[in-house]
Design a protein around this nucleic acid. Sequence first.
DNA 1: TAGCCGAAATGAAACGTTTCATTCAGGCAT
DNA 2: ATGCCTGAATGAAACGTTTCATTTCGGCTA
Lengths: 336, 336
Amino acid sequence: MASISVNDVAAAAGVSVGTVSNVLNRPEKVSPGTVARVQAAIADLGFVRNDAARQLRDGRSRSLGLIVLDVANPFFTDVARGAEDRAAEEGLAVLLGNTDDSLAREAAYLDLFEEQRVHGVLISPLGDVGDRLTRLRARGTPTVLVDRQTEDRSFSSVAVDDVAGGRLATHHLVSIGKTRIAFVGGPISIRQVVDRLEGAREAVAKHPSVSLEIIETDALSVLAGRAAGELVLERAPGDRPDAIFAANDLLAIGVLQALNMRGELHVPRDIALIGYDDIAFAAAAVVPLSSIRQPSVLIGYTAVDLLLREAEVGDTFEHEQIVFQPELVVRESTGA
Amino acid sequence: MASISVNDVAAAAGVSVGTVSNVLNRPEKVSPGTVARVQAAIADLGFVRNDAARQLRDGRSRSLGLIVLDVANPFFTDVARGAEDRAAEEGLAVLLGNTDDSLAREAAYLDLFEEQRVHGVLISPLGDVGDRLTRLRARGTPTVLVDRQTEDRSFSSVAVDDVAGGRLATHHLVSIGKTRIAFVGGPISIRQVVDRLEGAREAVAKHPSVSLEIIETDALSVLAGRAAGELVLERAPGDRPDAIFAANDLLAIGVLQALNMRGELHVPRDIALIGYDDIAFAAAAVVPLSSIRQPSVLIGYTAVDLLLREAEVGDTFEHEQIVFQPELVVRESTGA
DNA sequence: TAGCCGAAATGAAACGTTTCATTCAGGCAT
DNA sequence: ATGCCTGAATGAAACGTTTCATTTCGGCTA
């Protein structure tokens, strides 16, 4: 079955291809009778516009790319949903790329999006992609960083103040009387992890009697959390921290699973636990999880919005930096 | 900044466009010296292939579309991950479309994928999309149904035996001595819900002393589960079911949250609870959740595999139906 | 030396759309 | 009857790639 083109439609309707295109894109410019005839032909032949040809003609696609660290993390699917909502308002589709903490995959998705001439790129960057993004922008593809700011304001960004979030979480642990705090998170190459840890350090610095140790993980997943939890469980009781701040909720849930395994430890009495992101499952955990809430859907929505604004303005030196403030949510895992 | 094309590269390297294309696609056909020269020119000019033009030339894109009911459900992100793995092996990208139980969005994604001339479509269908899919196939785009079978074998599919799963779950509840079982799920327009309920009916039919009631929800989400749980909680104690089978884990988690709210009910003593999907969070729930496990990642992987096979064979009357068997996972929510 | 061969390179055509300068037809005013 | 105007329709050009039939050229054989 050969593919049906505007030519075939034009022939069937007895008009020119230009007219068919007009019916498709600006029907108000075509007389009603002709519109009807063309539409009938389209239906008859089962014509479907070829998007590749359209894209080729006007230089860019009608989609935008979103690159996230982990689709399995509900935080990012929430961000994606927000992005999709705003994009849909403009008739744009969102292509979702998942890097899974791999620099190679991050690069591969950037290549793909660049070849596709996407309308714009939203990225929660892993490696140092400044050069790539600069190149994209030079080609006319705007870029917005998600969940990460640049120090030099060379890109627009939508982020949450992770240092403040880390401070909030840790201060809370201190305020309920905990003194031996462990930060569980990693790899430390990820900015979010670094910032949250930095916040924890700042909070602890004010209290000489409180110690902070770091248990590094190789991912921000439930599995990695379980491993970290088991590590803690193996220690002599006196050696264990009395509070754990996990760099995200997936880790926290993993830690919780491990701590509960033998049934000899009580959360929060023996060890208090707080996570980060406040995903929907945090409230439903074995011990409902205290967490730091981020406006995830709003982040995605705002990022696309910013992207569209940036696209209109063109290349500019004034890139906008939007920073949301995180919020402490106290539940049983650090409660009474 | 005008876009750089193969023409510019050819000019810079002092060769013809045909040669540039050969360097890009089959470098072994070009002499080493020329390859080097062309690659240097590509790097110099920052040339990036225009995918739209490429697609236009060879009629189809290098991506395939995956349409799921709910990206927020970890079951589907697992499926997506499996699909992505297999697709990546072939150098294909996966476009993820989320219908959120909306017929309009399902249709919109089908339109989009059809216009994009995707390599193939994987869909967990919501409405009756038989005609659309038939049309796609007529155009040469293979289709595989995910998590749903057709009665008439007119499409290939990868599914799990949901009736068996429903039977498994319900039989388990009966076997631990429960007699007043409630099925929580909906909308009943969704095939998975219908099948799981059917399984439950079959299991109950064998035991005259066991009753089965249906509490219909308007979605398969945590929120909908909470609403259903609250409904149960409002009833007089004697009126409540002594076991709940939720159509998926998100619902089950919601139900659990609601039942635990007042603290007067004990799961599983007063009410036993079992979910479906065995998502990662099930094991970490307030009361670790019994569930029916499906090989989610494998489903995605297999579906793409089947799609590729179908693409090779071309239109055929022998469509393959792959059915996995679900597995009961017992945890505390129905345990001792 | 003439003829031939294969490897390497060439360049025009084709993919399907949109745009835009041009043409056309009919109605109206002069 | 002529000229002008407007709304509608036209059709060629352009977008950037890949393919493939053709040309070129250096080396080898007879």
